[in-house]
Design a protein around this nucleic acid. Sequence first.
DNA 1: ATTAATGTTCAGAA
DNA 2: TTTCTGAACATTAA
Length: 293
Amino acid sequence: MPELPEVETMVRGIAPVVTGRVVRSAKPCRCRYRPLSIVPSPSVIARRTKGTTLVSVYRRAKRVVLELSSGDRFVIEPRMTGLMLLSDPPDREHLRFEWRFEDGEDYTGLWFWDRRGLGTIRLFDRDEFERSLGSHKLGPDALLMTVEDWKKIGERTRRPIKVALLDQKLVAGIGNLYASEILHLANVNPQTSASSLTARQLKRLRESTQTVLETAIRYEGSTLGDGTYRNALNQAGQYQNAHKVYDRADEVCMTCHEGTIIRMVQAQRSTFYCPVCQPGRTLSPTRSGRGLG
DNA sequence: ATTAATGTTCAGAA
DNA sequence: TTTCTGAACATTAA
C-alpha cells in the first residue's frame, strides 16, 4: 500500500540523511527469495554508481527517486510491500537491496526491504527517466492537481470515478485506500461516472484530495493490520486511525452517524463508502414501468 | 489442507 | 480507442 503519503514519508525520512552522501556501493542483498526486478544488471549498477554523489531525493507519483551527480537516477517502486529504511529492518531475509555510503556518521547505508518482492529498482539515464516517468506516462501529481486537471479527467473517461482515481495516467499518486477516503470526504459516490461529475463535485474532489493526502502525510501514512508499512526508521504510521471508511465495512459511519459503511468491488478492488454521505447509484438496472402518476 | 484476499503496475486481450 | 483481465509474489485469514 505505499501510496503517495507513504512514499512521501519515505522520502522525507531518508532525504536529510542521504542527500550529499557519496555512494560506496549499491547492490542486491543476498536473499533467500527470487531476485527483485533490477535494471540494468547489478554489476552494471555497481560500476555506474560507485563514487557518485547522491545529489537529491524526491518523490514522483508512488516512486522514490535518488538523483546522482552523474545525471543517472535510481527509481525505486515499492509496489505492495516495499520500504526504504535507514536502519532497523523488520527482518533480514526480506532485505532486497542496499546502498552504502562513504564516511560514517550516524547512518552508513540505505536499504530496500520488500516482503512480497514485487517492487522494482531501476537505474535510468536522463532519457530513460523521461521516457519512463514523463507526463505521457504519469498524470499530474495528486497534490498539485488544479481544477482544470480535474475537469480533464471527466473529459477523458466514463469509468466510475473510483476506478479513474486509480489510473495513474489521469492522476498520479492515489491508490486504493486513499481513493475511498477522498471520495468519502468529498461526498461523491464511487460509482459516479467520471464524465458526469458536476463542477461542484470536481471542486470538492480537489479539496478533499488535498486534505486527505496532506493529513495522511502529517500522520506518516497508514499502517494496516498486517503492519507492513513502516517509515524510514521502521515505525508505524498513524493515519489508519483516521480512516473514515477504508476497511470499516459494517461499521456505523463516524461522520453522519447514520449510514453503515459498505464494501463493494470495483475493477477487482475493494471500495468502501457510506451510502448516506455519498448518495447515488442505488438504482436497480431495470426499472419496471413506474409511470409518473 | 486448500483457497481467497490483499494491493500496484504492466502486458496483452476484448 | 478504451476498458478489462491476469500475472508477478509472499503471507495471512478463512
